[in-house]
Design a protein around this nucleic acid. Structure first.
Lengths: 196, 196
DNA sequence: AAGACTTTGTGAAGGATGTCACAAGGTACC
DNA sequence: GGTACCTTGTGACATCCTTCACAAAGTCTT
């Protein structure tokens, strides 16, 4: 909305866009202070500014991607092209054949250089795009190198420490959620689920 | 657990693994019928079987990936290697330079062939790995071709029809959630959030 | 400037969700 | 077989979250 030049928005309009009730939106936004003006609505620029600050997106975050396979390269491109608060500054891999490979923006460097890269580049966050078997070790390396948080795409249980929060994203879950939301075409045994 | 040969599990053990209360797990599982045995716990094989059925993962799902850029290829590999309920059977792209490109398992085909591919290959689901600007059109094409559901990775608002549910995954959200969970090192203006 | 119309912020009510605690049912060991 | 010990399933309770409804506050038109 802001990029389209709109100046104001009502909770009613937001509710339609976000598929929430208008009351819900007002309650939520009121938590951040009195952002709206009665009879008028919310100032979009003001909302963006306040939310950006509350979500801590008013500062930049520098990231390193661990694992430069298909997923690692895809994530680098996905996050790297972003002109927002996030920028991928480096990618590492244990495979020597990948060293020096250009992935648009930077070249792949050895996993061993991780600590040095984090220090030199001022890296804040790590992204795990490694096989499940290497997830825990990679997380530990990132923490030892000094990152403040880690986003994990490996389907593995990783034990985290409080100094470096871990957020895991298992893409298969979304496929499972999707098939569960599918309209069921004549599935007779579903009656046992929806008991009262 | 099943692949490790464990036979039984208690709600207590599950609660530690899943970071939920034991009572919560019992309440949830009890919804699916009396799966456990008092004094013993839950039979893992039985749980897996019941959950697989309830989540509708007892049937296979064939998928086509639209957009064979970095992300499309990564997702194909990610989902395709999966020996579970999901398998990627084809990938399409509008760019003629990509036609015939081998991405492990299949070769990239023209976007125009989509309808035919869905018909011939018995495709159930579509995966959108296209730029945001092409998301809506790609969704419409998938629906016209006859898929039953779509998983969208483009950061765009896509209007869906009830016959083909849409699930959108915006990877940037997870970065934002991660930074929000970061321990705040001396942020003085956060006091206005946690009022009372 | 007065009245009709909007739209926010918010107490109160209602609904949904999670926790507690215990009876019922099962195992294991002597 | 009896006793001590587990563990599930579940009503009752507590807590959290959402919706409702309306006063307060602003705009616009005449």
């Amino acid at each position: 909305m802001a990029s389209q030049g709109t100046e104001r928005v009502s909770s009613q309009q937001l509710s339609e866009r976000l598929d929430l009730s208008a009351a819900q939106i007002r309650k939520d936004l009121a938590q951040l202070g009195e952002l709206g003006i009665r009879g008028v609505g919310y100032d979009i620029a003001g909302l963006v500014e306040r939310l950006t600050k509350v979500l801590r997106l008013d500062q930049g975050y520098r990231m390193v991607v661990v694992g430069m396979g298909n997923l690692g390269r895809a994530l680098s491109a996905y996050f790297g092209f972003n002109h927002g608060a996030f920028v991928v500054v480096a990618g590492v891999d244990p495979d020597p054949e990948k060293f020096g490979l250009d992935v648009g923006g930077f070249t792949v460097r050895p996993l061993e250089d991780l600590a040095q890269i984090v220090r030199d580049e001022g890296v804040d966050l790590g992204v795990l795009a490694v096989p499940a078997s290497a997830a825990q070790e990679s997380y530990d390396r990132l923490v030892a190198a000094g990152v403040r948080g880690v986003l994990n795409f490996a389907p593995a249980q990783v034990q985290a420490v409080p100094q470096a929060p871990l957020k895991s994203v298992d893409l298969r879950i979304y496929l499972e959620e999707l098939v569960f939301s599918l309209p069921e075409d004549a599935e007779p045994d579903s009656s046992s689920i929806s008991t009262e």
